[in-house]
Nucleic acid binder design. Structure first.
Lengths: 334, 334
DNA sequence: AAGAGTATTGTTAACGTGTGCATAGATGTG
DNA sequence: CACATCTATGCACACGTTAACAATACTCTT
């Protein structure tokens, strides 16, 4: 069928062992023998059988890239950037195997033999069982995007607190003093972090935020819309609103227009996430960008480091977010 | 280290051959023996070593999903839908290996041993070499999204001509008679197909499209913007414009607003592709949706059929597009 | 010139699984 | 009861590769 090292051995008049060593550039083999064997291998268009290699070397050349879900809810842009980032690091060193965690009925088949390492892009606490399963099996692992404190697990994510701080600071620097907040979904760590960052900014600049300027949200269009309606019904309306994600910001903007006012002329709005549509809506959205691609690059890089040096680094890495300034915020001159 | 069939054999007091047969549910083995072995296997938490299996069975359990590029230009939504579609069919039968074709420096490593089948989501003629390499190696292959006539290759794509026809027909049915066209990038098959479909619709309903109502485009924002400006400078402006993709439609809409007119009140606009942002822009875009997810499902399904029945079907399958009606088109009452 | 050391290659077994053939026992048949 | 047939299992090898150990030839030292 296909060419094996034994075929090459015959033609070269050596043992298959010598061929194996030659092709792996072992120092044991004479340089000219190597060269002769390489030439024959090329002529025959030899490709090693990776299954055989895997069997004896006890590694799979596979890198798992697992998402919380492929079928429900992962946003396309998020997904795309994550794969791009990881792929740019992995390239041809490993095969990139993409999976949705919710496609697994049992983690039974996830073993050290089938994955040299695994990258989990986690978007939910529900990923905890698989994280523990993988950690317990001793497979090198990095969890991206969500804080995790299982021992022996690398963790790379964006510093959302700091991102929200900058967003808040930006509004203040634009002259805003009456700043409201639409919070994220209760119970989500991201919601807490974003709120904390915002509060720290307000504290830092000595801006006080009355209770009426704080409303809970659910991270969806609807809740942003409703919250903004409430702000608009106040006697003293805020001049700027920080929404804990872009979708709520969109809903909020809609509410402003419906009330006959304008963004950013009458009210400025800031979002969080820099979702794909953020640049396309009118007005385009000023928002905080989580560096997903960079996170996945960094994560893949560190995982590779762990694998190849047989380490078990287990740090948590926070990457800085970026404030994307677009049209939805206007400086306040008053 | 990890549990093998030999370990199970010892515990069960049989040969490893019997264990192998039992776990593969061979009819040669007595039912009660099977059951006994299964129980032991479960207790030991046995997982077969797929590398060993692959070696002897001569199959990899790998399914390749190749994109023209991961790093430049593939749109996130497109990418996401393709993976979703394929994944929903593949699930746990194969590992899904995602690759960018432009990451390959040599196709040398793409062999029958390493991929049981390959799905190419093709966005460019440049993919031809890899398609031929795979076909020549005899690896089961399906090419999605782009017409291909290499022999022995399955081909699933959307019927863009028909999609454009419906878009055109829709405008006519809304009462429009002065309909203009912004074409796609010259040389792209999609550009030709979309134009053909549009023309067929106009012919079908007896609408004539003067030369001044046809302008070339480059599939980008800029060219859509420019073309619309030209239409607006005409004495007799069109009442509707069909843009061969969404980005150009966006540029066109921008031009309309800049001239002080409104979409859809003064001019209706239709796009093509249903890009992620189509639903979020203002006004939201009426457009033609290519069923990428369905295409990839259908493609994966047929590829699987070929692999499992050892067939070499080589048909071309066209799937219907869908007209997504949103806000950018207004009926004309005159 | 003999022994030690070194450079290069070969022999053999191993990784974990599946399968063709042989075998032993059970069952049927005339 | 002798022989054929069938059922359930085991033996031995194969898949393609790497690696520990063995073997050979050559060089150097004294």
């Amino acid at each position: 069928m296909s060419v094996t090292i034994k075929d090459i051995a015959k033609l070269a008049g050596v043992s298959h062992t010598t061929v194996s060593r030659a092709l792996n550039n072992s120092p044991l083999i004479q340089e000219e023998t190597k060269e002769r064997i390489r030439i024959i291998a090329n002529q025959l268009d030899y490709t090693p059988n990776y299954n055989a290699k895997s069997l004896v070397l006890d590694r799979s050349y596979n890198m798992g890239l697992f998402f919380t879900t492929l079928s429900n809810g992962t946003s396309a842009g998020f997904f795309y950037e994550a794969i791009r980032g990881v792929n740019s690091v992995i390239r041809d060193r490993y095969q990139l195997i993409v999976k949705g965690i919710d496609d697994y009925t049992s983690f039974h088949s996830i073993t050290k033999k089938s994955f040299d390492g695994i990258i989990i892009v986690s978007q939910s606490d529900d990923d905890q069982p698989i994280i523990e399963h993988i950690a317990q099996k001793g497979i090198p692992l990095v969890v991206l995007n969500r804080p995790v404190d299982t021992v022996g697990v690398l963790n790379v994510l964006s510093d959302e607190e700091q991102g929200a701080f900058h967003a808040g600071a930006f509004l203040v620097k634009q002259g805003h003093k009456k700043i409201a907040l639409i919070e994220g979904r209760k119970g989500f760590k991201s919601a807490q972090n974003r709120k904390d960052g915002f509060d720290r900014a307000m504290g830092h600049y000595g801006i006080s935020v009355p209770a009426a300027y704080r409303l809970p949200g659910l991270y969806d269009l609807e809740s942003g819309h409703k919250a903004m309606q409430q702000f608009l019904s106040l006697d003293e309306k805020p001049t700027a609103v920080f929404c804990c994600n872009d979708e709520m910001a969109l809903g909020a903007i809609k509410a402003v227009f419906e009330s006959g006012l304008h963004v950013p002329k009458d009210i400025s709005v800031v979002g969080f996430d820099d979702t794909v549509f953020a640049g396309y809506v009118t007005p385009s959205l000023t928002t905080v960008r989580r560096p997903i691609e960079q996170i996945s690059k960094e994560g893949a890089l560190r995982l590779l480091g762990n694998i190849e040096n047989k380490l078990h680094t287990t740090e948590q890495v926070l990457l800085r977010t970026e404030l994307i300034v677009r049209e939805s915020v206007q400086p306040l001159q008053a």
